Simulated assay, not measured.
Amino acid sequence: MGISSETGGTEREANALDRLRQRLRILYHGHSQSALRFQLAVMVVDLLIIAFFVVSPVLRGRPSFLWIDYSIAALLAADISARALAANDIPRWLRQPTSLVDLFILVTLLAPLWLANLGFLRVLRLWSLSRSGFLWRPLTRRGYGPWREIIHSALNLVTFLFVVTGFIYTFFFREGSGLAGYVDALYFTVASITTTGYGDILLPGTWGKLTSVAIMIAGISLFIRLAQAIFRPYKVRYPCPQCGLQRHDPDAVHCKACGYPLKIPDPGD
């Protein structure tokens, strides 16, 4: 009798977990009105969190910082747990770069004082968001699918800009500089990335020069990538079944790489 009760309880718990996972899959990946509203709400929360991450170097000394930090950690932990449960293969989901970035950001939120020097990396959440279906599914439905590569390149550049700004502020401008120091770090980053080089703000020492060189090389590469995405002819993403080539002309009937016949769907369908 006792064994039967335990088995029944285990089955009920398993069924409840399965129902929860199915519900989360519908909310995170579904197309119903309730799922779309949920996805929009999560995306808005993500954008607010990213805004906090951008200004967090300046807010770090304020009494309310830890309350906000731990509240965001609780939200992010709940979101990561829900995404994991919604995944069909949790170990595979955990190995994805976006999942690893989110887990690392959660660790920095849980230890804001110990890992303060790495706090600027939280802006990588913007990169993580740019790779999620939350951003692209509604845009694609509204006909903005062709802009995906341009938006990707722009978000990569913005992410790089604020990660580098946080790095510069943390290691070169932070001591007593406040908002003015953060603006100086942002100004230096933009001047370096654009190779404007006004010369009114310089990073001191050998490490400062090496940092400047790295910023200029990486920044100009991202600018070129963005320019290519904007000005080169429009392509569609459609993997060739034979060779796997991802990008083709919208009216292509054969793969340029291997000649395999393609059946690219009309964007209007």
Score class of each variant (00 low, 15 high):
residue 92 R to S: 09
residue 70 Y to G: 02
residue 107 V to Y: 10
residue 137 R to S: 08
residue 261 P to E: 00
residue 41 A to R: 08
residue 61 G to I: 04
residue 4 S to E: 14
residue 121 L to P: 10
residue 175 E to W: 10
residue 161 L to P: 01
residue 102 D to C: 07
residue 179 L to T: 09
residue 171 F to H: 15
residue 94 L to K: 15
residue 152 H to F: 14
residue 90 I to T: 15
residue 10 T to G: 07
residue 134 F to D: 14
residue 62 R to G: 13
residue 24 L to Y: 09
residue 146 P to Y: 02
residue 102 D to T: 04
residue 236 V to M: 06
residue 224 I to R: 14
residue 154 A to R: 05
residue 223 F to G: 08
residue 251 D to A: 12
residue 102 D to P: 00
residue 268 G to H: 10
residue 125 R to G: 01
residue 254 H to K: 10
residue 168 I to E: 09
residue 90 I to Q: 12
residue 154 A to E: 01
residue 240 C to A: 03
residue 12 R to K: 14
residue 197 G to P: 02
residue 91 P to K: 04
residue 217 I to L: 08
residue 104 F to P: 02
residue 161 L to D: 08
residue 114 W to K: 14
residue 148 R to C: 02
residue 68 I to R: 07
residue 140 T to S: 15
residue 70 Y to T: 08
residue 101 V to L: 13
residue 162 F to K: 00
residue 116 A to H: 14
residue 263 K to Q: 12
residue 192 S to T: 09
residue 17 L to C: 06
residue 117 N to M: 13
residue 172 F to V: 05
residue 99 S to E: 13
residue 103 L to G: 12
residue 171 F to Q: 01
residue 63 P to I: 03
residue 87 A to W: 02
residue 234 Y to A: 03
residue 158 V to C: 02
residue 58 V to H: 00
residue 230 I to Y: 03
residue 2 G to V: 06
